[in-house]
Amino acid sequence: MTSIQIIASIFGLIMVYLSFLHYKRHEFNRYQFVIWEILWFGFIIVTILPDRFNVITERLGIARAFDLFAIGAFVMVLSLSFHNYLLITRLEKRLENKVRQKALSELSSIKVKHL
């Protein structure tokens, strides 16, 4: 194993542990936990055994397993960004509605003398 493979594997193992930790803290449900664990174990396997993926890379016309991994990671980052964008927009709207509703609910308790 090369040094970069060792570093990447350690990183993968740390992420496996962190995913497990978030699951135990009930911040991930079981479905999310399984998805993230598959992802990080997949990452470790690709890192340690890149040659095993030659069949796939050759079929896709990609030179190396690392390139396949980089493309996959890029696609995943893009889809996660899109998902996060939608989520944040939705949360912003909900927060704005709640905060404004609360501010306006104070109106009923205000005595208006000049309208």
């Binding site: 927060l95 704005e96 905060v99 404004r100 501010a103 306006l104 003398k113």
Partner: peptide, 16 residues
């Protein structure tokens, strides 16, 4: 007393 005060608990921006 002519002033009516409303509070946004978090900063939402001028439009809000």
């Amino acid at each position: 007393t002519k002033v009516i005060g409303l509070r946004h608990e978090v900063n939402l921006g001028k439009g809000a």
